[in-house]
Amino acid sequence: MCLALLPFQVFSQDKKPEPGVFMKDPGSELWRQVRQRDMEGVGISQVRGVDSGVLINARGDQWARFRMTQLSTYGGFAIAGIFAIVILFYVVRGSVPVEGGLSGRMVKRFTDYERVVHWTLAIVFLFLAITGLILLLGRPVLLPLFGKEVFSLMASASKEGHNLFGPLFLVSLIMMLISFVRRNIYEKGDMTWLLKGGGLIGDGHASGGFFNMGEKTWYWMVILIGLVIAVSGLILVSPSLGQGRVIMELSHIVHSIGALVLMTVSVGHMYLGSIGSEGALEGMKTGYVDINWADAHHDRWGKVCHEQDLIISAEEYARSQGQKPGADKMETAEQSK
């Protein structure tokens, strides 16, 4: 390659008119190189290591300022804000009851495996969220409370816990992706749900299939943002892969913004999945939901259940939960003897 070019170079050198004396200020040239504004001209060093030839990485300070001023401030307000909103919402609207009350007649919604996947994902996610927030917001919030020594222990534990549980999030995310994806494809009718504000605003009923538009959107947020968080997290967790500082800084920004978005929305999800909406938690707890709940929140799926005669009586349901028909509470006290 070089040899092939050589003749041309000689040729062009012959042709080019030379200036008499051409020189740049050597002092400023040197420091321009050192500063590496355009991230070019990396030097070499006898000390082997990623980026060891970089003298000045100007992005580092930018990243630090972003994390300390924007990320932690807005992140903190987002988390605090969503809790405030949810509490306010609960005070104003209370638990949304199922229209016509619960019938006691149930229909199967989730298998054991699906529930195991959901709660495993939720546990791992919440663990990662808490440990991640301790790292991000601990210095302004917890350190003044506990002092450096104690907070250092908390942060060290959080960091190790976060790093160990990170890959588990990816695994449970993939399990969630596989077992729930079929029912989360957007379909006709989902738009009307959106137009009605999901039934949360006003009194109108919002139409939905097995999952309604809101749940589907939550599902895809979890999957897509979750994958971004997982990949950027894995880049951060393995410093020995040979990636440079700039990649780490970008990964951190992507990771923490994604995590904050997902954490914020997850508070809303947890509210709607528990105290916000009567009858919703049953499905994830026992696998069965009340048919009236299905009709109210997932009318198209409810219709299918009616048509295909999938509904079981209160007695059958009680038996499936190992209770004596009619008994309200499980007799665990007797059991444990």
Partner: peptide, 11 residues
């Protein structure tokens, strides 16, 4: 945690 390493201009 390595954050100082990301932030430091001089590595």
């Amino acid at each position: 945690c390595g954050y100082c390493f990301y932030a430091c201009p001089f590595g």
